[in-house]
Design a protein around this nucleic acid. Sequence first.
DNA 1: CTGAAAGCGCTTACAG
DNA 2: CTGAAAGCGCTTACAG
Lengths: 343, 343
Amino acid sequence: MKYKATSFDIAYKAGVSQSTVSRALRNSPLVNEETRHKIHAIAKELNYKVDKNASNLRSQHTGTLALLLFEDPTMDDSLINPFFLSMLGSITRAAAKKGYDLLISFQQLSDDWHADYEDASKADGIILLGYGDYLDYEEKLEKLYEQGTHFVRYGSVAENQPGVSFGCDNYQGGYMATQHLIKLGRKDFIFLGGASDNSPEFRARYQGYCQALKEAGLRIRDNAQLDAISTEESGYQAAQQAFEQKIKFDAVICASDLIAIGGIRAIKAHGLTIPTDVSIVGFDDIPIAHFANPPLTTIQQNTRLAGEMLVDALINLIHNLEVKASLTPATLIVRESCGSEQT
Amino acid sequence: MKYKATSFDIAYKAGVSQSTVSRALRNSPLVNEETRHKIHAIAKELNYKVDKNASNLRSQHTGTLALLLFEDPTMDDSLINPFFLSMLGSITRAAAKKGYDLLISFQQLSDDWHADYEDASKADGIILLGYGDYLDYEEKLEKLYEQGTHFVRYGSVAENQPGVSFGCDNYQGGYMATQHLIKLGRKDFIFLGGASDNSPEFRARYQGYCQALKEAGLRIRDNAQLDAISTEESGYQAAQQAFEQKIKFDAVICASDLIAIGGIRAIKAHGLTIPTDVSIVGFDDIPIAHFANPPLTTIQQNTRLAGEMLVDALINLIHNLEVKASLTPATLIVRESCGSEQT
DNA sequence: CTGAAAGCGCTTACAG
DNA sequence: CTGAAAGCGCTTACAG
């Protein structure tokens, strides 16, 4: 490893004090224009980079944001939800744009909270992205909140949640998806996905779904909501159940794309054709949706916007500015899994 | 923010010196069993965490690995190759397992190398994952190498490359894919993907392909290798070109799954059926491959293993141990895009 | 086994 | 506008 230049080396070469070098490099207005230029030139020549550890230690902040991805331990390692990967990408970009480093950490929901705290001490703030059971998750949020840690999270947005939350307008998304199928003349709906306190995002989608049905004067059958978590297999099982219970349907609204992909498999397995016999719509717009067979109509979450909002909000929080929860719009992406108008 | 305990607080409570606390916390054998227990207990009670900046500054290492993802600036932001996302996941896990933090940074290939250096100063070593033109990329590697930076990269593995490289056995993968279609009775092959110095990974796959054809006594047509980069659109265009040039084919080997997905679209658009009329195989085994229509036969890269190898190798490099380039095995995943035996 | 002390490379009052 | 000096919270010889 090459010798690493320090601010003293620069000071010596420039014939000024180390304090002045430090100020010049941070572009303090306190330093003479000319000296500053000279110092910058020497720094460049020497390949000088400020030592982050030293500057962070001294100024008591890290310039780093931590991204915690909570995983449900029941999930298969290899099949991390593509939606979260997409969020990860947009958060990384957003953080970089603001000059923050991003520390990434995958955790099991079951890990004890000391691990979170550990991460908290390495970063100025935390971004939480979780899946799995919300009720387990909430405990962690409360711990973090008590600790006075700066954090934002992406997921369901509701009253009485610890900390600041951002999320997609799930209710509106569920509503739009359902309305779209209603317009297409569909009458018998089922909903694939959990709708309990354990998955508040899914529940909001379900509520939007119910609202659309209600407004159209269509019945909401009690047995037509089948639980599923966000995996292909679980979606398959849920649809399978609908068949076993002999629930008649020509329209299926899914709480996620992965669920929809599984649903499609089950529907095809029963010899039905999509969208002729049944229309189906997903949620998220993960890349796979586009390549499903048939291509899946879905509700798109704006991950790019979400990433920026999360990062901006967290930085504001760190600077003790006020930040409030907000929703990102949901967009209907029409593809071929719904068919076109019919009567 | 709550008051943050320091090693002095613990020392005071335990009635020992701060040096002893530091040693106890690092589990130095120099400290009395009993005192160590007491110190650990107090640390836990006080929610004490070692200040990373201070310890890193003092001991002159960071405990952090940087992951640089180079992107070809021509790529669409939103469509980061799912394969890299998968690598990212496995590297994150592998780093965490070894107790290293992972700093993530997306960069354009066009960024000047100072940016890399910047990252180098924040981490003990760098993992490089790049796509886009290899020739541009190589320059960066050389710069990094000259600087004496510890780094490993994933991609093509060959002689005369600066630094240590890991990668999938692309040659073998291309060979296996081709051989599979040969066994199925296919005769007229085309290859979709670049095969020049600009994309050495693709070239290795192409060479494996050529070898398999040669061994089977099948002809390798000069015009049957169509350039494509790893996007759906580019794959579509390449297949399109094959049709325009009236190249007859019943088997297509693709340099990546994304290319294959685009190829499938073009083939279907020409009214041909897969796999009846033509067999197609991809490379990577990204999640989409499974859901393609028909499900895509492909060559799987073991990203989990690759992530572990990269992290282990980099850590060894940091400790000045010897490390050498190696290949990860390629695995044929048979799905429906090839059909079954026929004559 | 333990303590006193130096020092990692910065930032930032303080004094001019 | 500039410099001398303190100090961020650790680790690690050095001396016992």
